[in-house]
Structure formats: C-alpha cells, structure tokens
Amino acid sequence: MLSCKQSSQLVSKSLDRPLTWRERFAVRLHLLICVYCRRYASQLRWIRKQLAALQKDTLAQTDVTLSIEAKERIARQMASIKPDSQP
C-alpha cells in the first residue's frame, strides 16, 4: 500500500507522463481510501486549469508595458543593424 507521500509523488508524475499500469493501480487504490490525497489530486488538476486563465489575464494587463526608455533603446538597436546581417 502506498503512503500519502508516495501517492502525492505519483499524482504529480501523472501530470507529466503516463503512469505504468502498476503505478496507476496503486494510486487508484490509495485514492479510494484516502480523502486527503483525493483532495490533493483534484486541487492539482484545478490549479493547472486556472493557470491558463491566469496567463490570459497577465498578458492582457495593459498597464504593464515596456518603459519609454527601453522602447527607444530597442528601436535604436534595431536601426543600427541591417536585415540579413548576422550578429
């Protein structure tokens, strides 16, 4: 029988690669009897789902911008090189 620690590791792993059938069976069995690990597993899935929403929000924050100085500097740098010239 898996410990909660082992189960939490396998649940995390399952988000990164398919588990072997042996691992999957062991986790399922553990989750069946452990409410805490069930919570943990569903919370990880929930977090992953929310990250997409967060990313969308972050990229839409129009008050976060390049400074004017940075824009000018980048424009100057771009002006100083010719297309197709290698660095």
Partner: peptide
C-alpha cells in the same frame, strides 16, 4: 531598420514584455 521592426515593437513590444 526593416520596416516591420518598428511596427512589431509598437504593436507587440508590450505584450512580449508582459
């Protein structure tokens, strides 16, 4: 500068920065 460069910086610079 390549014509697109300035346009890209203006249109997408802030987005890329974020």
């Amino acid at each position: 500068m390549n014509n697109h460069g300035h346009e890209w910086l203006t249109e997408h610079g802030d987005y890329l920065y974020r």
